[in-house]
Amino acid sequence: MDEDKRIVLENLNVRYSGMETSQLKNININTPIGQIIGIVGNSHSGKSTLCRVLAGIIPKIISATISGTYTIAGRSPMDDWTAFNTSTGVVLQNPAGQLSGLADTVADELAFDLINQGTSADVISKRVANVAAQMGLTDQLRQKPESLSGGQMQRLAIATAIITQPQILIMDDPTSEMDPVGRQQFFHWLTTVKDTTVFIVSSEIDDLCEVADSIWIMSEGELVSQGSPQDVFNHLSPEWQIPTPTVYQMAEKMNWRLTGDVFPVAAEELKEAFDATN
């Protein structure tokens, strides 16, 4: 297929300076853009490093020994950093660290990214209102960013990432501080995102299985599994120490199988397997 429509990582190795072992080992991916990709792994599996590479933070901002290639939709952070950076939106693990610190209000914080791109004032105010509504921050627009709760802060971080309408969205555990209803609303919002490639690191396996087109499992710096949620969670290795989704556990206990002798991982599939058995 066309290079412009794919995410390609070839023999990617990354080692931070001063470290003895590589954080990413020989990562190979060739997959279409426009998907929601869930990245799953434990501490030190390399998932946060992978996010940094995908966002171009490595090697453009943090230096590291890097070999292999990375292009997404034909672009690489190494070729034209400003253009690449403009096409991505990034949510870091620590939402408070993402704030500019130079904004008096949530609205100013949101406008920051657009001002940087030289957007006109009336477009800015429209987009700020729109994104705040999507993330449920309309009532907070005039508040100081520091006064937000953890969950609100994460939604603000997401809002600053999506306000520039990036084609690539990279989010490192964006719901960790949200309450269950907030998290549910976030994952529902994620299904409404169009024409965007989304990389999301999360430990919410149940939710990932509902929204992700593809799951990547990381373990000790290697990409040990990739494919559809159903495929990946039906072939877990105990070594990776990754749990199965609740749907899978329920179906396994009840022996509800789909055709092809696999267990369902998402609600729709569960219904199908249930109907086939009962």
């Binding site: 609740t246 749907v247 556990q249 329920m250 206990k253 009840m254 609600a267 569960l270 219904k271 249930f274």
Partner: peptide
Amino acid sequence: LAEMLGDSKTYLSPQDYQ
């Protein structure tokens, strides 16, 4: 999940469901 399958009883875990 149970509710989606038309069962509104209280369950605490997949094991409990089984």
